[in-house]
Amino acid sequence: MDPHCLRKLNAERRARRAVVSLTDLGDGRDRIVREADAVVGPLGEAITAAFRSGRSGVVEVEGRSYFLNVHLPPPRIVVIGAVHISQALAAMAKVAGFDLSIVDPRTAFATEERFAGVDLVADWPEDVLKQRPLDAYTALVAVTHDPKIDDFPIRTALEAGCFYVGALGSRKTHARRVERLLGAGMDAAAIERIRAPIGLDIGAASPAEIAVAILAEVIEAFRRRELNRGAA
């Protein structure tokens, strides 16, 4: 393995960009291919398919054998709202293998005491998301049900192609949200992607149960997304 390839691979992974590490099993030469890099011919098609499916494997192309190792960024969850549900969700997400951050400008909610050991930012989403942009490997969970706080990150998440966008609130609350987003010029098809009321319908009642329903819905969105993309 070429040391430059290893450095490039690790740098891309740290930057949360999808990459394929390509090794010619015949001569041992390798290269790093980013999602945006165009590779022509049948090998390019195999690389595109690997990005879509997220599955690593050996491919035979024009008499040569290549190993494609796909590195997709680990999925993460950005929660808007340092509420009771978020406390439970933070603990569960960690067990399920998601990185999780919580953003809430209300300093009474966003306290270290309530969220020990959690990546917590007591600032407006408008400012935080500029520094830490959302991406296709991020789930956005908006649970303040305050439009002043939730609406901006929801819009930003839909524009960034987040694999999951969920928003807390009753059907009535959500209907008003949809009206506001339409009024702000958002595309109706994009708005349809918002999962609301948030969480799988398991009859969740307590904050911890709602957190389970949300996490299950996030996992479903992530796993099914790969199947959908693979079929596309």
């Binding site: 393995m1 290893l6 090794t23 099993l25 599955r55 690593s56 494997g57 050996v58 190993f67 190792n69 796909v70 590195h71």
Partner: peptide, 17 residues
């Protein structure tokens, strides 16, 4: 040296990659 699982058959404990 870097070792990489490139193929698995049946029940393998660690995934390809």
């Amino acid at each position: 040296a870097v070792a990489t699982v490139v193929e698995t058959w049946g029940s393998a404990p660690r995934p390809v990659g």
